[in-house]
Amino acid sequence: MANSKVNKRFDQYVLRGKLRQEGFERWRYVFSAFSKATGQERKFFVELFIVNPGISPKVAVLSQKSRLALSESDLQYALAGTASAAHANDEIAVLPSYVLVKAGVFGSNGKQMNKFHASSMFSFIKNTETFKVGDCLFRSNALSGSVVVSSQDLRIRPELLCNAGAMSWELKFERIIECSPLYNRKHYLWTPLGVKSVFSGTVHLDEEEYVVLPKSSNGYIDKSWGISPNSPYFHISSSKMTSIISGKQMLNSCFSLEGEFGGKLCAYLNFEGEKYTVENRGIFKKDAIIHDCSQMSDSSDGDRVHWTVSIHKGRFVIDVDLFCKGKEMFVRDYEMPQGKRCLLKILGGVGTGEVRVYKKIGKNLELLEHANVYDAICEFGQTEEVGK
Score class of each variant (00 low, 15 high):
Lys248Asn: 13
Ser231Arg: 08
Lys240Glu: 10
Gly201Phe: 10
Leu205Arg: 08
Pro232Asn: 02
Ile221Ser: 00
Glu207Asn: 15
Ser237Cys: 12
Asp206Ser: 13
Gly194Asp: 01
Pro214Phe: 04
Gly201Asp: 12
Ile245Asn: 12
Val195Ile: 10
Phe255His: 07
Leu193Ile: 12
Gly194Asn: 07
His235Gly: 05
Leu251Ser: 13
Gly194Tyr: 01
Val211Asn: 02
Glu207Gly: 06
Asp206Tyr: 09
Val198Ile: 12
Ile221Leu: 06
Pro232Ala: 02
Val195Met: 14
Trp225Gly: 00
Ser243Lys: 06
Phe234Asn: 00
Thr242Leu: 00
Cys254Met: 10
Leu213Met: 12
Tyr210Ala: 09
Gly219Leu: 06
Met241Tyr: 03
Ser256Tyr: 12
Met241Asp: 02
Ser228Gln: 10
Lys196Leu: 12
Thr242Pro: 01
Phe199Trp: 10
Val198Pro: 02
Ser200Pro: 03
Val198Leu: 07
Pro229Ser: 01
His204Leu: 13
Lys248His: 14
Ser217Gly: 05
Gly219Asp: 05
Ser231Pro: 07
Pro232Phe: 02
Gly226Pro: 03
Ser253Glu: 07
Asp222His: 05
Ser256Asp: 13
Pro214Gly: 05
Ser246Asn: 11
Glu208Asn: 06
Leu251Cys: 13
Ser253Ala: 11
Ser200Gly: 11
Gly259Tyr: 02
Leu193Val: 13
Val203Pro: 03
Leu213Arg: 10
Glu209Gln: 13
Val212Tyr: 00
His204Met: 14
Asn218Arg: 05
Val198Gln: 15
Ser237Ile: 04
Lys215Thr: 11
Tyr220Gly: 08
Gly226His: 02
Ser224Asp: 11
Glu207Phe: 12
Val211Glu: 10
Asn230Asp: 04
Ser216Asp: 11
Cys254Tyr: 05
Ser216Ala: 09
Lys248Phe: 12
Glu207Asp: 15
Pro232Arg: 08
Ser216Gly: 05
Glu260Gln: 14
Lys248Leu: 15
Glu208Lys: 06
Gln249Pro: 04
Asn252Asp: 13
Glu207Gln: 13
Ser197Glu: 08
Ile244His: 04
Glu208Ala: 10
Ser231Gln: 01
Ser224Val: 00
Leu193Phe: 08
Val195Lys: 01
Ser217Pro: 05
Phe255Leu: 07
Ile227Tyr: 04
Lys215Ala: 14
Tyr233Leu: 09
Glu258Pro: 02
Ser238Met: 04
Met250Ser: 11
Phe199Tyr: 15
Lys223Gly: 00
Asn230Trp: 01
Ser217Gln: 04
Ser238Glu: 01
Ser239Ala: 08
Ile236His: 05
Trp225Gln: 01
Leu257Trp: 09
Ser253Thr: 08
Ser231Gly: 09
Val212Glu: 04
Asn252Ile: 03
Glu258Arg: 14
Lys240Gly: 06
Phe234Gln: 00
Ser224Cys: 11
His235Glu: 09
Val198Glu: 14
Ile227Ser: 04
Gln249Tyr: 11
Ser239Trp: 04
Gly201Val: 03
Lys248Gln: 15
His235Asp: 03
Lys196Arg: 14
